[in-house]
């Protein structure tokens, strides 16, 4: 298929200034991800994979190079525009769930929709839809501290899906879970992907990476190996 890739990084570099000295964290990264892929970005800590995720998630912009996400050139965008792109096109799943403790599961999942222009009735349908999809709709009224780690991560995944984003970015999604629960969560990502959603996982864990159909190895700020596309 010769469609334009969903994610396209061309010669992307990222530098930080530490004590007046430029430190390059990402060096000329080229990466393309097609719609519907499930891929893992695998690398040890300090490899630059977190910086890469921040750029992919539009939390940060490249110092050099071009990044297209679902047809949008993410460069020279202001903070407000970046926020809108994140809201519409990216669904985040964090290692430590990042649920707001004072809100129940329903309200946590609803949060991204509040920052979009989604009408209230549709909001409700969508929230229950994704809670159903991750198998946690019976816990809609529960607060995070009343949920197990696995349940919390399901709520977080529901939150990532609720805006129907172009890509779901999962940063060490099993890092805070025991092995069995971690496997169930990974199975959930597989299901979500099977339903057509693009999933990108960032991890240092090979066991997690093996759930992906493509593994992108990052080392010292560069792509050291790319496990190919599903169609390859």
């Amino acid at each position: 298929m010769s469609t334009t890739p969903l994610i396209s990084l061309v010669e992307v570099s990222k530098s930080y200034f530490v004590g007046g000295e430029e430190q390059e964290v990402l060096h000329r990264v080229n990466l393309q991800v097609q719609k519907g892929e499930i891929a893992a970005i695998l690398g040890p800590s300090g490899s630059g994979k977190t910086t890469l995720m921040n750029i992919l998630g539009c939390l940060d912009v490249p110092t050099r190079g071009e990044y297209h996400l679902d047809g949008v050139l993410v460069a020279n965008l202001g903070e407000a525009e970046l926020a809108r792109v994140r809201n519409r096109k990216v669904g985040f799943v964090f290692q430590n769930f990042q649920l707001l403790p004072r809100l129940n599961a329903y309200a946590n999942v609803e949060l991204p929709l509040l920052y979009s222009s989604c009408p209230p009735r549709e909001r409700r349908d969508r929230v229950f839809g994704v809670l159903e999809a991750v198998g946690i709709s019976h816990k809609a009224e529960s607060r995070p501290n009343q949920l197990s780690g696995g349940q919390q991560q399901r709520v977080a995944i529901a939150r990532a899906m609720v805006t129907e984003p172009a890509v779901i970015l999962a940063d060490e999604p099993t890092g805070a879970l025991d092995q069995k629960t971690g496997q169930q969560v990974m199975e959930l990502f597989r299901e979500i992907n099977a339903a057509g959603r693009t999933v990108l996982m960032i991890t240092h864990d090979h066991n997690v990476a093996k759930y992906a159909r493509r593994i992108i190895h990052i080392l010292d700020g560069q792509v050291s190996a790319d496990g190919g596309t599903p169609h390859a």
Partner: peptide, 16 residues
């Protein structure tokens, strides 16, 4: 701070 960061990641614009 953490909550603010999360809200921003989820797409809250600065003015919100």
């Amino acid at each position: 701070t953490n909550e603010i960061g999360l809200r921003k990641a989820l797409g809250a614009e600065p003015h919100l």
